[in-house]
């Protein structure tokens, strides 16, 4: 029977390799659960409406906007945030490339950009087409593809050219 009196639920998910059990208000987004409940403040809140990409994290290996998802909907899911990609002592190649190429200015959009950038390379390699793919049967890596696929991540500081350079370097290094 539907219980319509409970405004809280419990949910268990794995975040950056650690199992987390939360008993939370149903209204809490995945973004707020990460930041306010699990104190993983790397993931940022920009618009809270799916329009900027600052909140991008990986869920079961795919990038999503954590602001447009309820935490209680992630029972059993594996969530990876920018903290899970690498640490200052042991950077993920994409984190290192962003530093090398100055892929940011204020840094606010950066965790989302890095999570997206990493996923974009994986999506191209998996043959997932995009709006600018000419031949749907043959997905290739090029600047237009990288730019189009990063359009869900807005940077107020306009670091786009350097983000592209960082992504190209990682794409070449891991080719």
């Amino acid at each position: 029977m539907t219980d319509t009196t409970r405004s809280r639920s419990s949910v268990t998910m794995t975040v950056n390799g650690t199992e987390q059990q939360l008993d939370i208000d149903n209204r809490v987004t995945l973004l707020d659960a990460l930041r306010e409940h699990l104190k993983l403040t790397g993931t940022k809140k920009g618009c809270d409406h799916g329009q900027c990409g600052a909140c991008t994290v990986m869920v079961n290996g795919r990038r999503v906007n954590s602001c447009l998802s309820l935490a209680v909907m992630h029972q059993g899911d594996e969530v990876t945030t920018v903290e899970g990609l690498g640490s200052p002592e042991d950077l993920h190649p994409m984190q290192a490339a962003f530093i090398e190429h100055d892929g940011y200015q204020c840094g606010y959009c950066t965790p989302g950009q890095i999570c997206s950038a990493k996923s974009v390379l994986e999506e191209i390699r998996a043959g997932i087409p995009s709006h600018v793919t000419r031949d749907l049967a043959n997905v290739v890596m090029n600047d237009d593809e990288l730019r189009e696929r990063m359009s869900g991540n807005i940077c107020r500081c306009g670091a786009y050219a350097n983000i592209l350079a960082a992504m190209k370097q990682v794409a070449e290094e891991t080719a």
């Binding site: 799916g50 991008t56 795919r62 990038r63 999503v64 998802s69 997206s116 974009v120 995009s130 869900g152």
Partner: peptide, 12 residues
């Protein structure tokens, strides 16, 4: 489908 939204949104 690919003309709509963003990669992150289309994943969900």
């Amino acid at each position: 489908v690919l003309a709509g939204a963003s990669g992150q949104l289309r994943n969900k």
